Amino acid sequence: MELQRALLFDGQGAQEVGMGRDLCEADADVRCLYEEADRVLEMPLSSLSFHGPAEALVQTAVCQPALFVHGIAFFTLLQKRVPSFRFSVAAGLSLGELTAHAAAGTFSFSAGLRLVKTRAMAIQKAAEEAPGGMIALVGADKATAEEIAREARLDIANYNAPGQLILSGTHQALALVPELARERKVRKVIPLDVSGAFHSRLMHKAAEELRRFLEDFPLEAPRVPVFSNYLGRPVRRPDEIRSTLIHQVEGSVRWEDCIRGMLEQGIGQFVEIGPRPILTGLLRRIAPQAEGIALTTVLDLQSHEHTLLKR
């Protein structure tokens, strides 16, 4: 019986200085991808990814394209090093959903660069016009997190895993969370070091800008189902993909639902591509028995090559 495998891509927050440099040193085709990205994006993305500075790489307008390029570059190298590699479904956290679509053939790398640039700049602009932030609730269940969100007038940005939910909104509303969480005996509250209230109503203008861009943006049916963060299930029709990518900007990321949906479809191996093994960590919280492989460097690819050959 053929192994059912999911391919996962990281989102904003996984970036780190040096990402992609070893990929470029290992392969000429990867170097070409980075050169194309520098040209299409009209920014020194390669240099910022490889050398920083960190304060520049963390900016949304830089970070999101950097992660997209890193994901497709690593996927390209994976296909060359392990030609028999196959995957049954694809998914990504937030920005990573766009990388998953590119890997699945929904749009080309070049078109994806334009899409990611538009999305990133719209989100950064919205964050500057409507300042806000995000806060993690550790140990809270869904009902408790939703109750706190309603009382503080916040949105649930991420349903990441059992006991790990993220709230998003204005700084004034976020200031109410610690006391509300204490009253409900939530184990820990952690303010996140982010530049905006992502996946919340404060991103509405960004979603509308992305809607206008996507009106004439060509989309194909992906070769494999791609799980939607917004719906928590796979999407395949171009019209549905267009709609979910727009709603995802201001809607909740239902990552736990995505993983559970993949498990229900018989996925037996989850392969994460990104600079840091964030999604593999969430997988362990959702389904400790599931097989997860994190590919962050060329050395990881070499060490897991035998496992990735399994079919």
Rank of each mutant, 00 (worst) to 15 (best):
T118I: 05
R119E: 07
R119Y: 07
M121H: 11
Q124M: 01
Q124T: 05
Q124L: 00
K125E: 02
K125V: 02
A126V: 11
A127D: 03
E128I: 01
E129K: 15
A130S: 10
A130N: 14
A130G: 00
A130V: 13
P131H: 11
G133C: 04
G133A: 08
G133R: 03
I135T: 13
I135N: 01
A136E: 07
L137W: 02
L137E: 04
L137T: 09
A140V: 13
A140S: 15
A140P: 05
D141R: 01
D141K: 00
D141N: 12
K142H: 07
T144G: 03
E147L: 11
I148H: 08
I148W: 10
I148V: 05
R150Q: 15
R150H: 14
E151P: 02
E151Q: 11
R153K: 14
L154T: 07
D155P: 02
D155W: 09
I156W: 03
N158C: 13
N158Q: 05
N158V: 10
Y159Q: 12
Y159D: 12
Y159C: 11
P162L: 01
G163V: 08
Q164G: 01
L165K: 01
L165H: 04
L165A: 06
I166S: 08
I166R: 07
I166P: 07
L167S: 03
L167T: 01
S168A: 05
S168G: 01
G169H: 07
T170R: 14
Q172G: 02
L174D: 09
L176W: 05
L176G: 05
V177E: 00
P178D: 03
E179W: 11
E179D: 08
E179F: 09
L180W: 12
A181C: 09
R182P: 05
R182E: 15
R184F: 06
K185D: 11
K185M: 05
R187N: 04
R187C: 00
I190M: 14
P191C: 12
P191F: 12
L192Y: 09
D193E: 14
D193Q: 15
D193T: 14
D193A: 15
V194S: 02
V194Q: 05
S195E: 14
S195Y: 10
S195V: 12
G196N: 06
A197K: 10
A197V: 08
F198V: 05
H199R: 14
H199W: 13
S200H: 10
S200C: 02
R201V: 12
R201D: 06
R201T: 14
R201G: 03
L202C: 04
M203F: 06
M203Q: 08
K205E: 15
K205V: 10
K205R: 15
K205G: 12
A206W: 02
A206Q: 07
A206N: 03
A207T: 08
